[in-house]
């Protein structure tokens, strides 16, 4: 693993990924007045005839995408993560139920979004989309992985939801390592033997920092980028339990039914292992910088270190 370089936000990766998909004429892009934010604007500027402005009307956008999918197109529909939630039932009944391949991207997910405040900070999107039958749920950790996973969606059948983040975080991957990613397969970033930190999104970077701190304490930690929450890579979780014996999950999302919830669901019906969850407790955020909010909500590498200690002590 090469050292992380300064990178882009995962939303930039989505925008770049769409450009790489443009050579397939079936690909169409739908926007709800937030193309400049989700980064679908790059596709619009090059391929205006395949970019559809749906206005500030997310419910309609989801079903227009469904109709296009039923007619042979491959629609990518994006807005803020929080505003996709307005159209939750449209996604459930209009896209997923008839098994239509529509790719939804919700940008600005999590409290990391920052100063816009709690109305824009979706902390429940991953949870709600996980509950929809047949829905793939993806949350990349940096711009390069977001781009790679967006490109892979072209050959992915069925509905998907990808959450991207607004703000830049250090790159986890480089142009070579990112090609090893596969939707539905977690990515082992660091291999250790005492505790495994399973993270997603912007928390992967925090998990790597935490692993370094733990290493200085003589604790060997694995770090997994679980960029796909559903289907969950349970084989990798099994391997982590075998190697480390205890787990920590880390996500910029409610601790209810997100990544931590998904891992807990799996553990509770299979091999038992201590699990500590780092995530947003059952509360809303507020305005502030990403780092202020991460601190206030308990989403820093130090919080992961503390959780690792708790998890190890429960072995």
């Amino acid at each position: 693993m090469s050292a992380p370089s300064s990178g882009g936000a995962s939303r930039d990766g989505y925008g770049n990924g769409l450009l790489r998909l443009a050579s397939d004429p079936r690909v169409v892009v739908l926007e709800a007045d937030l193309g400049k934010s989700t980064k679908s604007c790059h596709f619009r500027s090059k391929y205006p005839s395949r970019t559809f402005s749906m206005g500030i009307a997310e419910q309609n956008m989801m079903l227009v995408a469904a109709g296009m999918a039923s007619s042979g197109k491959i629609p990518f529909a994006s807005t803020f993560a929080i505003f996709t939630e307005r159209a939750f039932e449209q996604v459930r009944n209009g896209i997923a139920r008839p098994e239509l391949t529509v790719h939804i991207c919700g940008s600005h997910g999590g409290i990391h979004t920052g100063t816009d405040g709690s109305s824009a900070q979706s902390i429940e999107d991953l949870a709600i989309y996980r509950t929809i039958p047949g829905m793939t749920v993806i949350h990349p950790s940096d711009d390069l992985s977001a781009e790679e996973l967006t490109v892979q969606l072209l050959d992915y059948s069925g509905p998907s939801y990808m959450r991207t983040a607004r703000n830049k975080t250090p790159r986890i991957y480089n142009n070579n390592s990112v090609t090893g990613l596969t939707i539905g397969k977690g990515s082992l970033i660091m291999e250790g033997s005492d505790v495994c930190i399973i993270a997603c999104g912007v928390m992967v970077n925090e998990a790597i920092s935490a692993a370094k701190t733990l290493s200085s304490e003589g604790i060997s930690a694995s770090v997994v980028d679980m960029h796909t929450l559903k289907p969950l890579d349970t084989e990798l979780i099994d391997a982590c339990i075998n190697n480390c014996g205890c787990l920590v999950t880390a996500e910029d999302h409610s601790v209810i039914a997100g990544l931590g919830g998904a891992v807990a669901e799996y553990l509770s019906t299979t091999a038992s292992a201590p699990l500590e969850m780092v995530g947003v407790a059952d509360k809303f955020g507020q305005s502030g910088s990403s780092s202020e909010l991460m601190q206030a909500m308990g989403l820093t590498s130090n919080d992961i270190v503390a959780a690792a200690h708790r998890s190890i002590s429960r072995k």
Partner: peptide
């Protein structure tokens, strides 16, 4: 179309119509 929840069909039809025009 998979109906049952009211209010969605016209949007779906618009998607079908836009696809037809593209084709």
């Amino acid at each position: 179309f998979s109906a049952g929840s009211l209010g969605m069909g016209l949007s779906f039809g618009l998607g079908c119509a836009l696809a037809a025009r593209m084709d």
